[in-house]
Design a protein around this nucleic acid. Structure first.
Length: 425
RNA sequence: GGAGGAAUAGCGAAGUGGUCAUAACGCGGCGGUCUUGAAAACCGUUUGAGAGCAAUCUCACGGGGGUUCGAAUCCCUCUUCCUCCGCCA
């Protein structure tokens, strides 16, 4: 959520900055400001009624004791009570429209981002060399199938299109990657957290997935249980709600969490021929990093998350790049995002294996997550998240970038000690 | 699944329709007195949200609704936790 005070004081600025995201907020802002005015008028009026009510209610026991007739007071109290009820009903209606309008407003992008969509993303740096082959390289679907790493057919048999099964060495390779990532994060001082994979609505609201993107997750219903839960689309949704409605002492910041979870996404209508295999599915594995920081520390934390993610890909020995996303390509809740994109020879391009973002206080406002400073002052925290990494997109890169002419695949050195072998054939 | 009980500040807990919610009382935290220093003792202080330029006002007793002139207190409902029984990896 954007600070209503900021919107009140800088409405044009808000519209301008959201325009960089490709979001026309003119009508929203106008609507919000008018609801805000209506809301504040109603609150002042109601509070005055209540103050009067509080004053009079103290008179009743006193009058009773002194034997004074209280019926005129009761009549006045009834009037006040009716006015309050009427006002509160109005206020409820206004507040409801106000807060739902506030909740659909995306986060402001940082001012240094280029406006516009994907086409304005800027690669910041490249790592490693584009792999060259003196043979016709295979794509990862063929490699994974031929080497028996992934069972696409039976994945679809079990759960439909968009699901696959890791088998044998493929499963072990996936597991080794997860271990490698987690070990590295632990060395960097992150706390490992294993979270529920089904979450309640509030989590999605805090993270910013809801109400707007309700249809992009899988919902679960159980007979006789009114409460609906959804399969988490990323561990961020859980980790960012960990301190929902809390005031964290300054001494405990920054909080640094990692979590491994499968991620479940509808990905409705987003299949493309270029995204075969494990590039886009309904379920994939990911290790997620999340930090809660003081507002003034979030820029530094952001750089740390980016370099953590880069470091993992670098240690695996890949060619990849880091891209600064244009405002319009940053997601709804985020002020800035850098993607780490790995090279996939068969696609002759790069795919995202990590997305590192700073939400600033946007999620913290939604989830009422604050810090009590040493001085006693209360502020909203900043939340940041980044994948570290999405393993299911690393595996295609391993098999494609490390393939040999005979169809075998070299295991990255850092994984060899986890696996106990150096070549998959 | 069945039967009971509970939810009040950082923690424990009092309050069972009004004049005790800036919430008794205890613990903890912070500041001070005393002390060479510390402990003990003593004194003081210690929730959050909203409206307002401010003075100030309002709200919050797990969440939501209701009864009432007035609700922590009575009623309905949801959530969470605890105890006992049953079932279970």
């Amino acid at each position: 959520m954007i600070d209503i005070k900021y919107i009140r004081e800088n409405p044009d600025e808000v519209v301008k900055r959201l325009a960089a995201k490709g979001y026309d907020a003119t009508a929203d802002v106008e609507n919000i400001l008018s609801l805000d005015r209506e809301r504040r008028t109603l609150i002042s009026e109601t509070d005055a009624f209540k103050a009067e009510q509080n004053r009079m209610t103290k008179l009743i026991p006193q009058y009773k004791k002194e034997g004074i007739d209280i019926s005129p007071v009761l009549r006045k109290m009834k009037e006040l009570s009716d006015s309050i009820k009427k006002n509160e009903e109005k206020l409820r209606y206004v507040e409801e429209r106000f807060s739902s309008s506030m909740l659909v407003l995306p986060n402001l992008p940082d001012p240094d981002l280029l406006p516009g969509g994907k086409e304005n993303n800027q690669p910041l740096r490249y790592f490693g060399e584009v792999p060259k082959f003196d043979f016709e390289p295979k794509n990862h679907v063929d490699l994974c199938t031929d080497l028996g790493l992934i069972d696409y057919k039976r994945g679809a048999k079990l759960s439909g299109s968009g699901f696959w099964i890791y088998r044998g060495l493929g499963a072990r390779l996936e597991w080794a990657l997860l271990n490698f990532f987690i070990d590295t994060h632990l060395k960097n001082g992150y706390e490992l957290v294993l979270v529920p994979h089904m979450l309640g609505y509030e989590c999605g609201l805090t993270a910013g997935q809801f109400p707007k993107f309700k249809n992009e997750v899988f919902w679960l219903e159980a007979e006789g249980d009114e409460r609906r839960r959804f399969m988490l689309p990323t561990a961020e949704t859980a980790l960012v709600s960990l301190h929902y409605d809390e005031i964290i002492p300054e001494s405990e910041l920054p909080k640094k969490y990692i979590s491994y979870t499968p991620c479940f996404r509808r990905e409705a209508g987003s299949y493309r021929a270029t995204e075969r295999g494990m590039v886009r599915g309904h379920q994939f594995n990911k290790v997620e990093m999340v930090q809660y920081t003081l507002p003034e520390d979030s820029d530094r934390a952001f750089e740390e998350l980016v370099s953590n993610a880069e470091n993992l890909v670098r240690l695996l020995g890949f060619h990849f790049r880091t891209v600064k996303l244009a405002a319009g390509d940053c997601s709804y809740s985020m002020a800035r995002t850098y993607d780490i994109e790995i090279y996939i020879p068969s696609m002759n391009g790069y795919i995202e294996v990590s997305s590192v973002s700073n939400a600033r206080d946007y999620q913290a406002r939604r989830g009422m997550m604050r810090v009590r400073r040493e001085s006693g002052k209360i502020d909203y925290v900043h939340t940041l998240n980044g994948s570290g990494l999405a393993t299911s997109r690393i595996l295609p890169a391993i098999v494609e970038q490390n393939q040999n002419a005979d169809g075998s695949v070299r295991v990255p050195e850092v994984l060899q000690k986890h696996l106990g072998f150096d070549v998959i054939r």
